[in-house]
């Protein structure tokens, strides 16, 4: 019998944002349909994965997460190189975790110098995260912008409290910004409007809607991403037509469930595989909701997700 495939008519399209520079530019966005809905729209740029690198040796990671990086953990440059050379990272996400005033409070110029070294060491696009401390991030990210002029870094998070200061600097030094809001579609839209008012160009904005881990509030993020995507594609919400980044690896790997060993919790199975799947499934969910860039940690989780993206990008036959 014949039946009609009920297609959605999309009136909007996600903006295409070029990341990085020169020959190594990677473009994200550009979708004119829901995630992987290839039967009714185009996805010119499949989602990308950025591998995490930390500015200082991490203290609270479970061994299962640290193991692949044990030889480079204290050296962000070597770490970033390993991600690219050994694991084939498409992008690097440098987490300037030590700048947190509640942690080591690494000064802004030092953080900027580290960022510069990392950005010089790899030619893939470089994402730089502060610690969501409004004032410190302002200091740090401004310094990063200045030091890495012309590299088109992707910097954030820019929040309500510091979007002006960081946004202005990013304009001057031509970087891309991540507009970060706490799991709320209207706040996300509002911040994008404000960035536009500040004259941040439309091809320099990525939405960071805040992402939690599987079992730790993922459902909120999942829905807010789906709502942003729906608004952008169907409801002509022009200020939400930007690619979405999901920065969840750090949330996943601090949960209790990835830290428990198998003897401690036999019903939870193999500790490493469990951690890898917790991360990979968080990724899988946000991918299906509409994320364009995934910030991830474990190489095996990354491989699983890469395969998943490949599988979903094939317009499949039975």
């Amino acid at each position: 019998m014949t039946f009609e495939i009920p297609k959605v008519s999309y009136s909007g399209k996600i903006k295409e944002i070029p990341l990085g520079r020169g020959e190594n530019i990677i473009t994200v966005g550009g979708e004119s349909c829901y995630p992987f809905h290839l039967f009714e729209g185009a996805i010119p740029h499949p989602p990308k994965i950025a591998m995490e690198v930390y500015d200082k040796e991490p203290e609270d990671w479970p061994d299962t997460a640290l193991e692949p990086f044990a030889d480079v953990a204290g050296d962000p440059v070597a770490w970033a190189r390993k991600c690219v050379d050994t694991y084939g990272a498409e992008m690097i996400a440098l987490q300037l975790a030590s700048t947190d005033p509640n942690a080591e409070d690494t000064p802004a110029d030092e953080a900027a110098a580290i960022t510069k070294k990392v950005s010089d060491a790899v030619d893939v696009p470089l994402i730089v995260f502060g610690t969501s401390n409004t004032d410190k991030d302002t200091e740090v990210l401004k310094a990063v912008c200045e030091t890495c002029e012309g590299k088109n870094l992707i910097i954030g998070p820019l929040g309500e409290g510091n979007y002006r200061a960081i946004g202005a600097t990013a304009i001057g030094y031509k970087h891309t910004v991540m507009a970060s809001t706490p799991i709320d579609i209207n706040l996300a839209k509002q911040l994008n409007i404000l960035l536009g008012n500040l004259n941040v160009p439309d091809d320099k904005i990525i939405i960071d809607p805040t992402t939690g881990a599987l079992g730790y509030g993922l459902e909120y993020c999942y829905s807010v991403i789906e709502r942003i995507r729906t608004a952008a594609l169907i409801q002509e919400d022009e200020r939400l037509q930007f690619p979405i980044i999901a920065n969840f690896a750090k949330e996943v790997w601090k949960t209790k469930e990835v830290k428990l060993s198998e003897p401690e919790a036999p019903l939870l199975g193999d500790q490493k595989k469990r951690g890898v799947l917790m991360e990979a499934m968080t990724a899988q969910c946000v991918l299906l909701a509409g994320a364009d860039i995934l910030v991830m940690r474990h190489p095996e989780a990354i491989n699983l997700v890469k395969e998943s993206i490949q599988d979903l990008m094939i317009k499949g036959e039975g």
């Binding site: 599987l214 079992g215 919790a265 199975g269």
Partner: peptide
């Protein structure tokens, strides 16, 4: 297996 079914059950609970 615990390491796969547990995250799957979490995902299902979340969604």
């Amino acid at each position: 297996e615990g390491h796969s079914i547990f995250p799957l059950l979490l995902a299902s609970m979340n969604i």
